[in-house]
Amino acid sequence: RNRTTFTSYQLEELEKVFQKTHYPDVYAREQLAMRTDLTEARVQVWFQNRRAKWRK
């Protein structure tokens, strides 16, 4: 699989949710996936990576 390149809009939306919660539930991830036109799996992985970056 190729690396996903996120648009500025997608990143904005993802970051907005990340500010509210670092662990969005499956419903929140589904909503976000629909809004950003990404798969729920991509959203889930983005949050995993974002949490790792945040911990550093």
Rank of each mutant, 00 (worst) to 15 (best):
V17D: 03
R1V: 14
N49F: 05
A28S: 11
M34I: 09
V43C: 10
R51H: 01
K53I: 08
Q19R: 09
S8D: 11
D37V: 07
E13L: 08
R29C: 10
Q48G: 10
F18M: 02
T5Y: 13
H22T: 04
L14R: 00
R1A: 11
R35A: 09
V17E: 09
D37A: 11
V26L: 13
R42T: 13
V17K: 05
V17L: 14
A41P: 09
K56Y: 10
P24C: 00
M34V: 14
E12G: 11
H22I: 11
R1C: 15
F47D: 01
R29D: 00
V43G: 01
Q48M: 14
D37C: 09
F47E: 00
V17C: 14
E40G: 07
A28N: 09
T36N: 04
S8R: 13
Q48S: 12
R50A: 10
E40K: 09
R42L: 12
Y9N: 07
R42D: 15
R51I: 08
A41E: 14
M34G: 12
Q31G: 09
L14I: 01
R35M: 04
V45D: 15
R50P: 00
K16E: 05
W46L: 01
H22S: 06
P24M: 02
R51F: 15
R3C: 15
R42A: 14
R29G: 01
E30H: 15
T36V: 10
R3Y: 12
P24L: 04
H22Q: 11
R55F: 06
T39M: 04
A33W: 04
D37S: 11
V17T: 12
Y27T: 15
F18A: 00
A28V: 12
T7F: 06
F47L: 05
A41K: 14
K53N: 13
D25H: 03
R3M: 15
K16N: 05
E12N: 13
K56T: 06
Y9M: 11
V45I: 13
Q19V: 11
K56A: 07
R51M: 06
R50W: 01
R29E: 02
F47W: 02
Q48R: 11
E12R: 06
Q10E: 05
W54M: 15
N49V: 08
Q48Y: 08
N2A: 06
T21F: 13
V26I: 11
R29L: 14
Y23L: 03
K20W: 07
K53V: 13
W54T: 09
Y27D: 14
Q48D: 15
Q48F: 06
V26Q: 13
E15G: 01
A33S: 08
L14S: 01
R35C: 08
F6T: 05
Y9S: 14
K56F: 06
E13V: 05
K16R: 10
P24K: 00
W54A: 13
L38D: 00
T21N: 14
T5M: 15
K20P: 01
R35T: 01
T39L: 03
K20E: 15
K53P: 06
S8N: 09
T21D: 11
E15C: 02
Y9A: 12
A41R: 07
R35D: 06
Q44H: 13
N2F: 07
W54L: 14
R42E: 12
E40C: 07
T21G: 05
A52H: 04
R3H: 08
M34P: 00
F47I: 02
E12Q: 08
K56V: 09
R3N: 15
N49D: 10
E12H: 13
Y9T: 15
D37P: 02
Q44L: 12
A41S: 12
T36W: 05
M34E: 12
R42S: 13
V26M: 09
Q48C: 11
F47T: 04
V26A: 15
F47Y: 03
N2G: 11
V26W: 10
E15Q: 04
A33F: 02
T39P: 05
T36I: 12
H22W: 09
P24F: 01
E15A: 01
H22Y: 01
Q48L: 10
F6R: 02
R50G: 02
N49T: 12
E15P: 00
R1I: 12
L14N: 02
T7Y: 07
Q31P: 01
R35Q: 05
Y23S: 07
A28F: 05
L38A: 05
K53T: 12
Y27F: 13
L38C: 05
L32E: 02
L32A: 03
A41Q: 11
R29F: 07
Y27S: 11
Q19I: 08
E15K: 01
K53W: 08
R29H: 05
A33I: 11
L11K: 05
Q48I: 04
L38Y: 00
Y23V: 05
